[in-house]
Computed example of a mutant assay.
Amino acid sequence: MDNAPAHPPNLKEDLDIEYNFIKVKFLPLNTTPLIQPTDQQVIASSKKLYTKALFTRRFQVTNDTDLTLRQYWKDHFNILHCISLIDKAWNKVSFRTLQSAWRKLWPACVPERGLEGFEEKTSVNVVNEIVTLSQNMGLEVDKDDVAELVEDHRQELSTEDPVTIQQEQVKVMQQEHSGQEEEEREDVSSVQIKDICRKRSEVQAFVERHHPNKTVTNRRVDILNDNAMSHVQKILQQRKKKVSLDCFLVASPTSKRQKKERKDSRNS
């Protein structure tokens, strides 16, 4: 195993007695890319196969349509599609690829003949198919672009990266929907929003009281609050601020004069 944070150093001591036939060895620092099996074309092969599957799906969805690339990513591709393509790509990694990956670490298990040139030929074929699919979709992609794409994904995400990515996605979504939100606000009255918030509280209390699985209930309620109710509540809050500001701006001269007189009397 490599020295990833997810692999506790005391793992071999934590193994139960019944698993004493398992021996855990950690690779020396800075040797993972050189000898770890998955780094010997396995990861690169799966990434190329994933890219091919991704381009194939996009071609199938957008062929003979007017869908732009942006529309495809926004409306026709989600995390479920991504996971499905990853599964499809991994299942297409050949047995010969997995076998040859052990050549540097465990050469005795790899046949001396029969694998020479196989990986290189397979990789070239996949790259050529990706380039062909790209060109059929009107994209200017060549072999170097595919190699660069695979290379860009070699760097692992840090724990901070997903948070940053999520913040950027939320910011983009807010910008895209800001104009639409302004239009929708006029269609829903504040009375309706207050009524919905009250009903949501009643439904939440009822479900939490009677649903047998509290964990599932809390998770679903959190999703509803974060994705839906927070939006309408924000609209209500903004309206309250706007009403307060309007009341201040349209205050009559008499009211302003009276406030000033009261302030002067207190000061005196």
Rank of each mutant, 00 (worst) to 15 (best):
D161R: 01
V221D: 02
S158T: 05
V216S: 08
S230T: 04
Q233M: 13
H231T: 09
T159R: 05
M229T: 03
V207I: 09
I196D: 06
K241Y: 04
A228K: 11
F248L: 13
E168P: 07
D195P: 10
D187L: 13
K199D: 06
P162Q: 00
V163A: 04
L245R: 15
E186T: 06
D226V: 09
H231R: 08
R219P: 05
Q174D: 12
L249E: 06
Q204M: 13
P162M: 02
E181V: 11
V191D: 00
R200S: 14
D222Y: 09
V243N: 12
V170C: 05
K256L: 15
N227C: 11
D187N: 12
Q166N: 02
S189Y: 02
K256N: 11
V250R: 08
E202M: 03
Q169N: 04
S255L: 15
K241E: 14
L157S: 06
S158M: 03
C247S: 12
K256E: 11
L224A: 07
N213W: 06
R257Q: 09
D187T: 06
I196Y: 04
K240C: 07
V250G: 01
A251C: 09
R220Y: 14
D187K: 11
E208N: 09
G179V: 04
R200H: 14
E182L: 15
I165V: 04
F206H: 07
R200T: 11
Q238H: 04
T217M: 00
V221E: 05
V250C: 12
Q192N: 10
D222M: 15
S158F: 05
S158P: 10
P162E: 04
Q169S: 04
L236Q: 02
Q237N: 14
N225W: 03
S189M: 06
I196A: 05
S178K: 14
V243C: 04
I165K: 00
V216E: 08
K199V: 00
P162C: 05
S190I: 08
Q175W: 13
N227A: 10
I193M: 00
A251E: 15
K214F: 06
A228M: 10
N227L: 13
M229G: 04
